[in-house]
Amino acid sequence: MRETTMSMSTILWGLLFGSIGLGFFLYGKKQQAIVPLFCGLALMVFPYFVSNTFLLVAIGVALTALPYFVRI
């Protein structure tokens, strides 16, 4: 069984992206905009599954920037 340990930076990055995700989710729900809604949901959920800090930051930045470039 693989043991995973989370560093303090991973926890803080996860908290930051989860907070941004909550903002996107609430905005998308209120404005009925599908892209911010799903990006916000993804930002809140994905830190639970990614343990590498660099990968966490890369995915988080990509999901944070996605609603600014994709308008549906």
Rank of each mutant, 00 (worst) to 15 (best):
P67S: 07
I34T: 14
F46K: 00
C39T: 09
A42F: 05
F24H: 07
I72C: 06
L63N: 02
Q31F: 04
M6K: 09
L56A: 14
I34P: 02
V50D: 00
L37T: 11
F25Q: 02
F69G: 12
R2F: 01
G60T: 06
L12M: 13
Y48K: 00
Y68N: 07
L37Q: 05
L15T: 08
S7C: 02
M6H: 09
M1T: 02
L22C: 11
P67I: 13
A62P: 03
N52H: 09
G28W: 06
E3V: 11
M8W: 03
P36I: 06
Y48D: 06
F69R: 10
V61H: 11
A65W: 09
L16P: 01
Y48N: 03
G23N: 07
S9A: 12
V35I: 15
G23R: 04
F49E: 00
M44I: 14
F54V: 13
A65P: 10
I72V: 10
T10L: 00
A58H: 08
G21R: 07
V45Q: 12
A58K: 13
L37Y: 07
L15V: 04
S19L: 15
L55Q: 08
V50Q: 06
F54S: 12
V45E: 12
K29A: 11
G14K: 00
S7P: 01
L37A: 05
L41Q: 03
A58E: 14
A42V: 03
P36L: 06
I20V: 13
S7L: 01
V57E: 10
G60K: 01
F46S: 03
I34N: 10
W13A: 12
A58L: 15
G60Q: 09
K29P: 04
L55N: 09
G28E: 11
M44N: 10
L66F: 14
P67L: 12
A62T: 13
G21C: 11
G14Y: 00
R2P: 14
I34W: 06
K29D: 08
P67V: 13
G21I: 07
I59H: 04
G18K: 07
S51E: 02
L16R: 01
Y48L: 15
G21T: 10
S19E: 09
P47N: 11
L41T: 09
N52Q: 12
T64Y: 13
T5M: 02
Y27H: 11
M1C: 09
M1E: 05
E3K: 05
M44R: 07
G21L: 03
T4Q: 07
F46E: 01
M1W: 04
Y68V: 04
G21Y: 01
L63P: 02
F17D: 09
L66K: 08
I34D: 11
G28K: 11
A65C: 14
F69L: 15
Y27M: 09
L55H: 06
S7K: 10
P36W: 05
R71V: 04
T5R: 06
L15F: 13
T10V: 02
A62Y: 12
F24M: 12
M1S: 10
F24A: 02
G23T: 10
E3I: 10
G40N: 11
L12W: 15
V61T: 14
F25N: 04
V70I: 12
